[in-house]
Design a protein around this nucleic acid. Structure first.
Length: 409
DNA sequence: CGTTTTTGACCTGCGC
DNA sequence: GCGCAGGTCAAAAACG
């Protein structure tokens, strides 16, 4: 945990003079600034009075004080983590119950109705959770269908290999038909028997593009780094699942089109991972031009396209609003060429917190693709996928997100 | 020595 | 029933 400060770390900080601290030490010293100020004060006193004899005792005492402070900080962080986990579980239950309810009733005609229904759902959820143990019930109901549906993400190599914040363990590799590049199969190794699986494969047509597919929902708390991806994939998955029961789309695949955020969200079967289960594909391969998100209608109304530019900085109420977004997806019927403006335009226009939270969740994607676009402009990658794999994969290994050795030798 | 990856074998679903 | 392809298993190998 970030809040934990080891005795060794404290001693290292103490040994170095303040002007010689490296960045990591500076970070530690900021976290313990109170203790360090007190420490330096104590050292000054001891220098004046009993320079050699009492200094070790003073240092030991100060270390104890700092240790106590670190313990307190640890306790606070644990309490916060517990609170966040509980909140997350509650919201997840809320979403799942709402999905079930939505499948039995037509979607609300506008966002105000959606909000009203959302509040009503919340009351229903709390009652059910208290009385019936809603989590177990919904998990069981959700799991079988969730396990089959899939969210597929097309992205440039570096982005995919940088990781998604989760830890994965490889359990298989297979060379699929029509693609010389092998497909790797991963299981989530963060939780106990987490059902989430992930597949990674290079695109046959463009070896700089990776296609990553996610299947299932995590049954454990996620680290902060994994939340943006998890939010988007679970929301897309929810939409797909809620729609797949009522209006299956062509090729059994739902397509989202967006020219600013996910650049273009294209059909998955021709270039992606083959699958017999419903798949939703997010295409991150075409970067946005600036830091604004432009949601545009993809087809007939292109000439009347509206954009909603705003800065890429979120605010509070993130989790709540993300859940709103996820639910807004679930209340829509997926259709071919559905665009994100259709999904989130109205809620964003009316609710600033919703807008901010959505931007927070998606900004990491656009920022990354921008960086990669700049990078790719400078250095076009070579033609041989296999020869590039070790270095790229080592990058991901260094992040600790996909652990240890390269995929392809 | 424990953990993770590799890889051939096996299982399953689908089309013919 | 057969063949094919995708997905998973599990023993062996590799790694730290």
């Amino acid at each position: 945990m970030e809040g934990q400060v080891s005795l060794k770390e404290l001693l290292q900080v103490e040994k170095k003079p303040s002007h010689a601290c490296d960045s990591k030490t500076q970070e530690t010293s900021i976290n313990n600034s109170m203790g360090l100020n007190f420490l330096s004060l104590g050292l000054n006193i001891s220098e004046k009075n009993h320079q050699n004899q009492e200094q070790p005792f003073i240092q030991a005492g100060l270390l104890r004080i700092k240790l106590e402070e670190a313990k307190k900080e640890n306790q606070n962080l644990r309490a916060m983590l517990k609170q966040i986990t509980e909140h997350y579980t509650s919201l997840q239950n809320h979403l799942l119950l709402a999905m079930q309810k939505q499948q039995q009733s037509p979607p609300p005609p506008n966002y105000q109705d959606f909000l009203k229904q959302n509040r009503a759902d919340h009351v229903i959820m709390m009652e059910k959770a208290a009385l019936q143990g809603a989590k177990r019930m919904t998990d069981q109901a959700f799991e079988p269908c969730c396990r089959k549906a899939r969210v597929s993400i097309r992205a440039r190599s570096d982005f995919s290999l940088r990781g998604d914040g989760c830890q994965w363990r490889k359990y298989g590799q297979k060379t699929a038909k029509n693609n010389p590049c092998p497909r790797a199969y991963y299981r989530c190794s963060m939780g106990n028997e987490c059902p989430v699986r992930k597949q990674m494969q290079r695109c046959a047509k463009d070896d700089t593009v990776f296609i990553t597919s996610y299947e299932g929902s995590h049954n454990h708390p996620l680290p902060a780094a994994a939340k943006p991806m998890a939010s988007i994939t679970s929301a897309a998955l929810s939409m797909l699942l809620s729609g797949s029961t009522t209006s299956p789309t062509q090729n059994n695949s739902t397509t989202l089109l967006n020219s600013g955020l996910f650049s273009s969200l294209s059909a998955s079967y021709s270039s992606g991972l083959a699958s017999s289960c419903p798949t939703i594909t997010l295409d991150l391969t075409i970067p946005s031009k600036n830091n604004s998100l432009n949601f545009q209608r993809p087809t007939s109304s292109l000439n009347q396209s509206q954009s909603f530019p705003f800065s890429l900085h979120g605010s509070a109420q993130e989790t709540e609003s993300l859940n709103l977004f996820a639910k807004s997806l679930t209340t829509m019927k997926p259709e071919k060429n559905l665009c994100l403006e259709d999904l989130v335009g109205a809620p964003m226009a009316k609710d600033s917190s919703f807008k901010a939270a959505f931007v927070t969740a998606t900004s990491s994607f656009t920022e990354e693709t921008q960086k990669l676009n700049n990078h790719n402009e400078l250095s076009k990658s070579g033609p041989c996928p296999s020869s590039k794999m070790p270095s790229l994969l080592n990058q991901s290994c260094n992040t600790g997100l996909i652990q240890s050795r390269p995929l392809w030798r």
